[in-house]
């Protein structure tokens, strides 16, 4: 009886993982398809499609754009999130509970709505669609996340440390830059890398707010319109690999930092 339930549990867990990862496995597998259709049967293995994507200038430009937008918009979101968290944690602001809720609220709004809203604002202001507007959109999406992560790690025990810094002659910006931010580095990095991975494969806002220079997901989407092709599988695998790389880097930096701090 005991045995049976263990086996059932293992089977259940196996199915769940299969369910989650099967699409990715299939995607990666058929990116090596020796043939022009990424569907069974698997005719043989080749690196031809990878060669094709790496020599595709448009695709590589889009990949570069994506990285640029992800890194810069995440950095901006982290700085803004940190400043907001600092203000809420260290000063008594009027209606601070409400204001805090309002900062986090966009997390629950669909990116489609945010994208459309931004689009009409940009129309009104006359700002032309470009990578900058995509970046702005990603800051809007990621700021609540960065704020929430950083705010959660700001505890009362750091207050005395900041006070000591002030007592020793540090000005406000020096306290933030030399004391608070380094103390919160693990959570700031966590926020940064999470935000990078979100921005990296965000499609809707990137699609709505870009025109000539596009990010990778948008470029892939336009590739898809011309039909299935193992090339899309190959670029999809690259996207997946880079996401994993971000996560691993985050795991390492953040984990090592939190493990070390007292």
């Amino acid at each position: 009886m005991r045995h049976l339930s263990t086996w059932l549990a293992a089977l259940y867990a196996g199915l769940i993982y299969l369910f989650i990862f099967l699409p990715v496995v299939v995607l990666v597998l058929f990116s090596f398809q020796d043939g022009s259709l990424p569907v069974p049967p698997l005719n043989g293995l080749t690196l031809r499609w990878y060669e094709a994507i790496f020599s595709d200038g448009k695709l590589m430009a889009a990949l570069g754009n994506s990285l640029l937008v992800a890194l810069i918009s995440s950095a901006v979101a982290c700085v803004l999130g940190f400043l907001a968290a600092y203000a809420f944690a260290r000063y008594t602001l009027p209606a601070s509970g409400l204001l805090r809720g309002l900062i986090v609220a966009p997390m629950t709004v669909s990116t489609l709505i945010i994208g459309l809203g931004l689009l009409s604002i940009l129309n009104i202001t006359g700002l032309r669609l470009s990578l900058v507007t995509v970046g702005i959109g990603h800051v809007v999406i990621n700021l609540p996340l960065c704020f929430a992560i950083i705010y959660a790690s700001m505890g009362g025990h750091q207050v005395n440390i900041e006070r000591a810094a002030r007592d020793l002659g540090a000005r406000d910006w020096q306290v933030m830059l030399l004391v608070t931010a380094p103390m919160l580095l693990p959570s700031i990095l966590a926020a940064f890398f999470l935000s990078v991975t979100f921005s990296w494969d965000e499609f809707i806002v990137a699609f709505l707010l870009s025109r000539f220079d596009v990010t990778l997901p948008v470029e892939i989407w336009s590739m898809l319109r011309s039909g299935l092709d193992p090339k899309t599988n190959a670029i999809g695998s690259v996207v997946f690999l880079i996401s994993i790389a971000f996560l691993v880097v985050m795991e390492f930096t953040v984990f090592r930092k939190t493990g070390k701090s007292s």
Binding site: N160, A164, D167, M183
Partner: peptide, 15 residues
Amino acid sequence: PTTTMFQDYALFPHM
């Protein structure tokens, strides 16, 4: 011209 030594020491943990 004063400095304070806090009960929880308040040392900078990252330095």
